[in-house]
Design a protein around this nucleic acid. Sequence first.
DNA 1: GTGCACCTTCCCCTATGGTGGAACGTCAAG
DNA 2: CTTGACGTTCCACCATAGGGGAAGGTGCAC
Lengths: 129, 129
Amino acid sequence: MRIGEAAAAAGMTATALRFYESCGLLPPAPRSPNGYREYTEDAVNRLQFIRRGQAAGLTLDQIKGILNLRETGESPCSHVRELLARELQDLDRRITELISLRAAVAGFHRNAVETDPASCDPGQVCSFL
Amino acid sequence: MRIGEAAAAAGMTATALRFYESCGLLPPAPRSPNGYREYTEDAVNRLQFIRRGQAAGLTLDQIKGILNLRETGESPCSHVRELLARELQDLDRRITELISLRAAVAGFHRNAVETDPASCDPGQVCSFL
DNA sequence: GTGCACCTTCCCCTATGGTGGAACGTCAAG
DNA sequence: CTTGACGTTCCACCATAGGGGAAGGTGCAC
């Protein structure tokens, strides 16, 4: 199948497929005589794996690492386990950060809502921050 | 004072100050006869306001908007209120997203820890994703 | 008179995940 | 015979917030 069809089958754009190939996430696609890329069902499966990896919050580089491991015949299982563990830690850290940022912003906002705008000092930029 | 000193006073780098000036966050600094930028205490206050804005999670573009409002003589109070309200919503959305992503990743990870690696199917990339 | 720290401008580079356009080739239908 | 939908390549660009280095000027101390 050609690039547009494969892209549609995986819920992506043709541009994204070319981009993935250029990054090494996909092996160079075989070409039909007219130079068009030819994709198999296997390629589409790989694309869907990429999608699942992204949905799991992995970066393209991490997904590439998994695919490369599988390529070398090694089982990526333990690598993926570590990846997921590290990602959980990372997510926890980011969630904590966002929650404390939210508390800070909520404090600024509460102050901004409660304070009389007339008390605004033109000598400074903004007393709310 | 010169750029390095002003930067240090605001806890930034000289490069950042030039960058802010180039983006319109800072008015073009007056120059001393040798062409060096000259900063006043007021400029350092402005830099510290930028820092506080960033600490509150605002983008440089949003901070620039506040500074520009103040520049035109208008009081940025209500603008800042709206900005903070929108940011709270945005933070809530991002936190919710991250938490649900975390749940999904935790599920993958639990499965990966509990599953026997020997049951790994070499025909697919990784059964954990 | 020279070394050193600081300043200037200009332009490219970082990471992320692609998108869009230009200029051109290919193929089937009308 | 031409139109349209697809394909190809390469190159530039989006946002974000600067960092890094080259090539050169300035000013002070030794």
